[in-house]
Simulated assay, not measured.
Amino acid sequence: MAYKVLIVDDSSFFQHRLKEIIGEHPDLEVVGIASNGREAIDKAKQLEPDIISMDYEMPYLDGVSAVRAIMAERPVPIVMFSSMTYEGATITLEALDAGAVDFIPKNFAEVSRNSAILKKKLHEKLIGFASNANPAARRNTSDLAAEANERSQRAKERTAALRARMSARSDAAPSSPSAPVAPSPRPSVRLKGRVKIVAIGASTGGPVALSDIITNLPANFPLPLVVVQHMPENFTRAFAERLNRLAQVNVKEAESGDALLPGHVLIAPGGKQMIVDRGGRSVKIIDGDDRVNYKPCVDITFASIASNMGGDALAIVLTGMGADGCEGAKLLKSKGAAIWSQDQETSVVYGMPAAVARAGLSDEVLPLDEVCPRLLSEF
């Protein structure tokens, strides 16, 4: 049985072309088309689609507002079909925060010329999410939004409590030389003192996951962080600027020569590759090789850290399709680095972290809401 797709777009041209492209796949069936956000909400109720393709700039009600309303009433996977401009990236990030699961860059030329790459990307993403790539996203229940809010609140409470405990310990005189520095959720090798950088890789679902982690770090976090998120160029710049406004640490899209400093986060630019220079003092941005599928690529950044910093790193692999990060994690592990991966339950797509875990590389498999508290307890 084909998965039911609802197309939301105010352009008759894009409506027609998307219906043609989506309808070419035997596992997908377009069951309706909406021309604005209000109509999208009504048709989502009536047609009960398995997945929705959503534009954002529409009359009467925009795409972001429609996403919020649909996710609050009947949660369903929503993929944004977004402009590749800077403004499009900014609004797309708001849609992801509102509950959309992913986005596809919207390019008139690609749609017009019947691009095979666009077809493949569109089919894969729609089928991937509709076929239960994220089990939680397809639950037909009003409890989903409440559960998401509860997880977010729980994460904030745990982070705040851990900060309070750390502050209390730093202000109080030690009761004995053997008193523990910080409680650990599970037995593990202490990382403080041997890790000089935190490297994070993510793809589908990554913007929300990264925001959850980075916005909860204190300004005095003692290590530099480098982040590789699969995104086009304008999207990484908008993403970095958005995080910088929300976070206490400094966040920017990386440029060649940027120093690796404590409490600073460097985001790999879309369409390029980010490598850590010899000695781990700065980063270098190079053109993306056409032989590499991802630009930026987690494997390339991880490999550069293994080559130039050895095992003095903690690598974290978050939600995402595919297996990018696994080969780089192998290199880091061979040098003695620590590897964490996100668990299946809290991943939007359990691809990248699954590859790392199944290869036996993960020292810890963590729910998203435990990643930041663990970082604070370790460092």
Rank of each mutant, 00 (worst) to 15 (best):
R190Q: 07
E24K: 12
P262G: 15
V276K: 04
L6R: 07
G288M: 09
E94T: 06
L217G: 12
V292A: 02
I213P: 00
K335I: 05
T204Q: 06
C372H: 07
R113N: 14
Q229C: 07
M274C: 11
L223R: 10
N216R: 11
K45A: 13
A89P: 08
D290N: 09
G351A: 08
E345R: 09
V371K: 05
R190H: 14
G23K: 04
N134H: 12
G205Y: 08
I52M: 00
Q273A: 09
P185K: 10
T346G: 09
T159V: 15
N107Y: 03
S83P: 00
Q248F: 08
S377Q: 04
S12M: 01
N132G: 15
F14W: 11
S11K: 11
P49I: 01
P105H: 04
V79Q: 06
R186M: 09
M58F: 14
E255N: 14
S131P: 03
I127P: 02
G63D: 00
G311H: 06
V371D: 02
L162M: 12
E233K: 06
N149P: 00
L261P: 05
A136R: 08
A168F: 01
V31T: 12
S11A: 15
V30F: 11
S341C: 14
S152W: 00
E241M: 10
I275S: 11
T346F: 03
L246W: 11
G263E: 02
A34L: 03
F14D: 04
L47D: 04
R113L: 05
L332G: 08
G279H: 07
D10E: 06
L332S: 05
A240S: 14
T236F: 10
L191M: 15
A259T: 11
S53Q: 07
L261I: 14
L260K: 11
R358M: 07
V5G: 01
E241Q: 14
L368D: 07
S176K: 01
S211V: 01
R194N: 14
V208W: 04
I21L: 10
P262D: 12
N114Y: 10
I316W: 08
M309L: 15
E124L: 08
G205I: 00
L122M: 09
G322R: 04
L223C: 12
M80R: 14
S188C: 09
